[in-house]
Simulated assay, not measured.
Amino acid sequence: MKRIIKWLFITVGILILSVVIIGTAFINISPQFGGSANKDQQLSYAETGHYQDGIFINDEEIIMEYNCHSITAMLKETMNPDPNVAPHQNIDVLKMDPQSIGTLPDSLPRITWLGHSSFLIEIDGKKGLIDPVFGQYAAPHPWLGRARFNKEMPITIDDLSNIDFVIISHDHYDHLDYESIDELKEKVNHFYVPLGVGNHLRRWEISDDKISEMDWWQEAKYKDLKIVLTPSRHMSGRGLSDQSATLWGSWVIQSQNTNIYFSGDGGYGKHFKEIGEKYGPFDVGLMECGQYNELWRDVHMMPEESVTAAQDIQAKLIVPIHWGSFALATHSWTDPVERIVKAAKKENMPIATPKIGQSILIDGELKTDYTHWWESKRYAMMR
């Protein structure tokens, strides 16, 4: 018996050691985890005023308690998520005709929701992508994440022709996907990213002259478009040792006649009013409303706060994002959109809820006659 127990411990020890070795090798070798800043870059980050002790910090403090109670609560929720955390069946998307992209007059901007926080934007004769994630998993490996709710995307990367610009809000996997960027990189003229994120792109063999790394409130020009990185209240990181090593943010995209705000991820804060005062009003606010939890509400808004934030930035129309594709929290997959629609109605705030692959024309008229497509019985949980 002693010999059996001895060999059992040895076997378990070997298995644990093997997992550690394989995991360490994966983190160090896989391009998924991107690049890191050198000493000179870190010194330049320190001059921003929101970089201390090797990490970026928020203007407003975030509180995320890691104690026995909170960890126990998080584990309990993770093990017992809402039974409707994902739709019962695959979500059907609206397929896009690649030939139709770029065919509208320059004076008729169009935004198309690709699911979660990904968008195709056609504005002033230019085509851009925001947080383009075309993969099936928002994780460095399929074993580490739940599959996307829709097995097909509205359009494939192969079907996309030249893209003028790509905008990235931060380096979390549901916003910056290595495989998608690797497939896109030869088609993209320029990438706009927060400070530090450029190191990921450079490791992925994107030339430095195609990358603009930006700080909060910094403005850039792409031809006659103004592109601005504005603050958000969040964090970053792709591995175990690079938490908040890169900056995060929200974005403003302005043409002569159109003004678009993209919230990225983040908790509610004073920055929304500052953004509205400086760059508003906005024709549309693409507002995060999902993957929340009371334990981390400082870094992800509740849906009701998303409506308040849209009012703060002076948005004429809300489009809910960060829902409908991935289960990254434990709430029902429809809870975010149900709550934000209810809150918007209460505040008399126009809101559009497109299907994945559906477009919104920004032509001066507020179009809010989108169906509550998520209420379809085919997506309901079997009982």
Rank of each mutant, 00 (worst) to 15 (best):
W204S: 04
A245V: 02
P320S: 07
D242F: 09
N293P: 08
M96S: 07
K377Q: 09
K151N: 13
L144T: 09
P336W: 12
R202A: 09
G13E: 07
S70M: 03
K2V: 10
D131F: 05
T24V: 04
M1R: 09
N189F: 02
E186C: 01
Q32G: 02
G324H: 03
D215M: 12
D131G: 02
R110K: 15
N348L: 09
E65W: 11
E152P: 00
T72K: 12
T24L: 06
E47W: 06
G196L: 06
P31G: 02
G324P: 07
G264I: 12
I167L: 08
F282A: 08
D177Q: 11
V166S: 00
S232A: 15
A46S: 15
G357C: 02
P231V: 06
K39Q: 14
P194H: 02
V193E: 01
E365Q: 11
I16N: 00
I22R: 03
N259Y: 02
R297E: 14
T353M: 10
D82A: 04
T72D: 13
A138W: 07
H69Q: 13
P81R: 08
V133A: 04
T330Q: 12
V284I: 15
S236H: 00
W248L: 03
G285I: 09
W7E: 04
A220V: 04
I167F: 01
F326S: 13
S180R: 03
A138G: 15
Q52E: 12
Q136L: 15
E375V: 00
R233C: 03
M349W: 03
I313M: 05
P336M: 11
L176R: 04
A344D: 03
G54A: 07
E205D: 15
W323I: 11
G285V: 07
N67Q: 14
S118K: 05
F119G: 01
I130Q: 02
I91M: 06
W113T: 10
T258M: 03
C289K: 04
I167V: 10
D209K: 14
W251Q: 05
S117L: 02
W333C: 06
V337F: 02
G196I: 04
H50N: 15
K126W: 01
N28D: 01
E338D: 09
Q218M: 14
C289E: 01
F272A: 07
P132A: 05
W333K: 04
N189S: 12
S332A: 14
G125I: 04
G35T: 08
E179P: 02
H331K: 05
T103A: 14
C289Q: 05
A220H: 04
I168W: 00
L144V: 06
H175T: 10
G364M: 11
W296V: 00
V228T: 15
W216H: 12
R148C: 10
S232G: 13
S100K: 15
D312L: 01
E152Q: 12
I356A: 01
L229H: 07
Y370R: 03
G249H: 08
E347K: 14
F9A: 10
E213K: 00
Y137G: 08
V133Y: 01
Y379T: 06
D158I: 06
Q311I: 11
K223P: 00
